[in-house]
Simulated assay, not measured.
Amino acid sequence: MSISRTIEELYSSLLFQDKGYITSNKLVLLESPYCFSIDAGFLIHHLTAFYLKSNHKVVLVSFLNCFQHYNTIGLKLGINLASSRIEGNLTFIDCISQNKEDSTVCPLTNEANECSLSNISNCLQKLINKHQDSHHNIPLTILIDDLSSTVLLGISQIQVLDLIFSVRALLQAKLSIESSLCVLATSNGDFESTEGRLVNHLSNESDIILTVEGLPSGFSKEVHGKLIARSKRPSPVIVCYREDWHFKLEDRGVKLFPIGTASGIL
């Protein structure tokens, strides 16, 4: 029996490990420290593919990359984001482009960035309301990449958190069917920094947390980093569950190994 797993297998186990715990929506945090060797960006691509393959309607909000970047990687993971967009299964909100011809462009710039954040919030509210009216029986997932970019542009932590929690509350109020809000955020490891406080607040409120870390020993050909998977179930008391894995990034996926089983890594 193989002891390795895929990201999709691990994530499914976190979503459905406790059948007695039911929630209409989940807040999922994808976090990593600023690191030149590895980051949590690959998780956004895998979860986008995971939810589209699970027949969810998906909204991908990007503060970091253009659509073509996600589509190129999506093809390697067996999903065509361009086709999904045309078919109405994927909505891409571009927060970095200045192309006004695209109705889903909500550029976030240094100029009037607080107003732009409000525009993004309004855009998400309209999408959730539209989904409730037209596709109320289909699960909806919103993914945000990378939320830390907002505070680096000078937007206050309170306004950023208000965006996340108001969107989550709207998902809870409007959609009785399963929904998820997945947020990628990075920090410099300093809990007193703006990014550190943002990640800490999100961590406290999240149902599932996937943390990507580099290897203390540095680079390894066989293992590229460590993935810590945690989930919290608040009823009747808060129960925390944790799994630690080593991972290797491959051209068309990610391979997970139990700690201590990969050659050359303890």
Rank of each mutant, 00 (worst) to 15 (best):
C123T: 15
C95L: 04
V160T: 13
I155G: 04
I142V: 12
L64M: 12
L170Q: 13
I120M: 08
L27V: 11
C182L: 09
S235G: 07
S206L: 04
Q132A: 15
L198D: 02
E192K: 15
T48E: 06
D207V: 06
L143E: 02
Q172G: 12
N110F: 13
I3K: 10
L147N: 01
L27K: 10
E243F: 02
L140E: 02
V28D: 00
L90W: 04
V223F: 04
L29M: 09
R230G: 04
L170E: 07
S97P: 01
R168I: 02
K53E: 08
L210G: 04
F92M: 03
Y70R: 06
N129F: 11
I208L: 05
A185T: 03
S4P: 03
H131N: 08
L81W: 05
L227W: 00
T194Y: 07
S103L: 11
E178W: 08
S203A: 14
S231T: 09
F63Y: 15
T109H: 10
S187P: 02
S4A: 06
S193K: 02
I265N: 01
Y11D: 03
K174W: 02
K57S: 14
H131D: 05
L175V: 09
I3W: 11
V239G: 09
D207K: 04
I7W: 00
I142T: 05
S176A: 15
K100H: 12
D244H: 03
D145I: 01
L108A: 05
S134L: 12
E87C: 06
Y21Q: 09
L108K: 01
E243P: 00
S32Q: 01
G189N: 05
S2W: 09
D18M: 09
E9T: 12
S206F: 05
D146I: 05
L266C: 11
D251F: 10
L227N: 00
I44C: 05
N99D: 15
A229T: 01
D39W: 06
S121K: 15
L163I: 08
E195D: 15
G196V: 06
R5A: 09
L77T: 02
Y34F: 15
E222S: 12
S103P: 13
L198T: 08
L153Q: 14
D251R: 08
E192W: 09
R242D: 10
N80C: 07
G189R: 03
T72M: 11
V199G: 04
K19V: 10
Q125N: 13
A173N: 14
S179K: 04
H136C: 12
G88V: 01
S263F: 15
L249A: 07
S62Y: 07
Y11M: 02
N25E: 14
R197Q: 14
E9C: 00
E222I: 10
S4I: 11
I138C: 10
T261N: 00
L64T: 15
Y51L: 02
P139Q: 04
D133P: 00
L152I: 11
C182T: 13
R85Q: 14
R197T: 09
S13F: 03
I7L: 08
G253S: 03
T109R: 12
L15I: 09
K174M: 13
P107F: 08
L202E: 01
G20D: 11
G154W: 07
S84D: 09
H201Q: 14
N204L: 12
E250V: 10
L181P: 03
Y34E: 08
E8R: 00
T23C: 07
D207M: 06
S180Q: 11
S12N: 07
F191Q: 13
D146L: 05
S54I: 04
N65L: 11
I158H: 15
I73R: 10
P234G: 07
